[in-house]
Amino acid sequence: MSEAPLLSVRGLHKSFGALHVLKGVDLAVRSGEVAFLIGPSGGGKSTLIRCINFLETPSSGEITFDGRPLCHEDGRIFHLAPERVLRAARSEMPMVFQHFNLFSHRTVLENVIEGPIMVKRRPRAEAIADAERLLREVGLHDKSDFYPDQLSGGQKQRVAIARALAMRPKLILFDEPTSALDPELVAGILDTIRALADRGMTLVVVSHEMAFARKLADVVHFIADGTIMESGPPDRIFDNPQNPRLSGFIRSILH
């Protein structure tokens, strides 16, 4: 892994009206690292990665991605990078959503090639060849002409992962990728994510799959009440937590 973080978040705040959701979050993710965000519902996990991807605009703080400042503060003035810079960064760290967010009126293949053609401006033939390869990798090469409503939840999520990979990303954000799936479909998605980690991809995963986090993560961040309360390697986080809130959270999950 490189010394400088691929992604750096410092002092990040996010409010929705009077609701203060993120309260000064600091986070660093290095290239090739698999980082899991765990914690109670409503603690700020999903809001954090939506701010990282600028699907939500932070209220204050700093985000730097691949050496490029995306937002920062100058005194008390909060600055966003130009939209073209944010758009370029977003294309290099796509998000896989819990509810898939596929275009229902487009085929599987059309969903996968949309970003590379419209955002990355790649030739259509190149985008199609890349998409066909990725669909084979996720086991859906025979579904390219299907529409999302013809697929199972697990298949939809694998299309969403292929769509993210088609952007040739530097980092992929996963927001509860298995929470909308029936239990029998979860293992297939976890296997797909594991394969990405085995390839050395940089992943940030919001998940309630504690056993999976323990096996796959390089680092686990525990988020509650809008702050990262404890971070560390999975064995220490799960076996020897230092923060009382984390200890209580783990006990509630295990029992």
Rank of each mutant, 00 (worst) to 15 (best):
L135G: 10
L135Q: 08
L135Y: 02
E137V: 06
V138N: 12
V138L: 07
L140H: 05
H141W: 10
H141S: 15
K143G: 09
K143N: 01
S144K: 10
Y147A: 11
P148T: 03
P148I: 09
L151F: 04
L151V: 05
S152D: 03
G153R: 03
Q155E: 06
Q155I: 02
K156G: 00
Q157M: 10
Q157G: 08
R158F: 05
R158N: 03
V159S: 00
A160D: 02
A160T: 03
A160P: 06
I161D: 02
I161K: 00
I161G: 06
R163Y: 03
R163D: 09
R163M: 03
R163F: 01
A164V: 00
L165S: 08
L165C: 06
L165P: 03
L165D: 07
M167A: 07
R168F: 00
R168Q: 11
R168C: 00
R168T: 02
P169H: 11
P169K: 12
P169I: 11
P169S: 08
P169F: 13
K170Y: 11
K170N: 14
L171F: 11
I172F: 06
I172V: 12
L173M: 07
F174T: 13
D175M: 12
P177Y: 06
T178N: 14
A180F: 01
A180C: 06
A180I: 12
A180Q: 10
D182K: 01
P183C: 05
P183L: 08
P183Q: 09
E184C: 00
E184D: 15
L185W: 11
V186A: 01
G188A: 14
G188F: 04
I189H: 13
I189E: 10
I189M: 02
L190R: 08
L190S: 07
A195N: 11
A195W: 01
L196F: 07
A197P: 05
A197C: 02
D198E: 15
D198G: 04
R199M: 14
R199C: 09
R199H: 12
G200T: 12
M201E: 11
M201T: 06
M201L: 13
T202K: 15
L203A: 15
V204R: 00
V204F: 03
V206E: 12
V206I: 12
V206P: 13
V206D: 07
V206F: 11
H208S: 14
E209Y: 05
M210I: 07
M210G: 01
M210Q: 12
M210N: 04
F212D: 04
